[in-house]
Amino acid sequence: MKTPLITTLLVLTHSICLAQYEYEPSSTYPFGQPNPNAPEQIKDFAPMIGMCHCKSENRTSDGSWAAPVDMTWTFAYLMNGMAVQDQTLKTDGKHSGSIRQYDADSSRWYVHYYSSSAPATAPLSYWTGNHESGKITLYKPQQSPQGIDGFSKLTFYDFNENGYRWIGEWVNIDESIVYPFWKITCKRE
């Protein structure tokens, strides 16, 4: 029996689409792959690609650390391996994620953040930065509650085969004042 033309066209179209998006998550690569046409910096987040079980700790209003919250943090290549997306799922119901794109013209990462506790009704918050000295450090201008100019500073560090660590800090302009407000420790699944 001859294969109908429409079936042949559908199979051919499906094959072309698969080849066109070969770096997307798949059954073989559940977290995608870096696209060889992406800037080399796409691999900066390679130590985080996959899923980790983490402990997330935030400062309370009195300045003490709240009890750790269990979460999973999943990183994957998206946009056919041209960007990195992450997602957190926390047992307290406050979930979040980011889209991470490297801009070769400015030689910087741009990380756009979103959260289930504060749906985006305006442009997404974003941080910029780079991978240097074994750390990925990102900054966003932000004043302290006292009105001091500074930055929200986010740092990924202590990468190893078992996981990584992350810390969120407020720092003044010259980083002589450092106030940690959030820390996360992740263990690879």
Rank of each mutant, 00 (worst) to 15 (best):
K2T: 05
T3D: 10
L5W: 05
I6C: 00
I6W: 05
T7E: 12
T7W: 10
L9A: 07
L9E: 13
H14I: 15
H14K: 11
L18Y: 10
Q20N: 05
Y21E: 07
E22D: 13
E22Y: 04
S27P: 03
F31C: 05
P36A: 05
P39V: 01
P39R: 00
Q41T: 01
Q41D: 00
I42H: 02
K43N: 06
D44V: 04
P47L: 03
M48N: 14
M51W: 00
C52F: 09
H53N: 12
K55A: 09
S56C: 07
E57G: 00
N58L: 13
N58Q: 13
R59S: 10
A66R: 12
P68T: 01
D70E: 11
F75R: 03
L78K: 07
A83M: 11
A83C: 10
Q85F: 10
D86K: 04
D86C: 09
K90L: 12
D92A: 04
K94I: 12
K94D: 11
G97W: 02
D105K: 14
S106A: 01
S106Y: 01
S107D: 10
Y110C: 01
V111I: 09
V111W: 00
Y113T: 07
S116H: 02
S117V: 09
S117E: 13
S117P: 00
A118G: 06
A118L: 11
P119M: 05
P123N: 11
L124A: 15
S125W: 12
S125A: 15
Y126H: 15
W127S: 08
T128L: 01
H131W: 11
G134T: 01
G134R: 04
K135L: 03
I136A: 02
I136G: 02
T137K: 00
L138T: 00
Y139K: 14
K140A: 15
Q143R: 08
Q146M: 13
G147M: 03
I148S: 04
S152R: 09
F156M: 02
Y157I: 06
Y164F: 12
W166N: 10
I167G: 05
I167S: 08
G168D: 13
G168Q: 14
N172E: 01
I173F: 07
E175L: 01
V178Y: 01
V178H: 02
P180I: 03
F181C: 02
W182R: 07
I184P: 00
T185H: 09
K187R: 14
R188A: 11
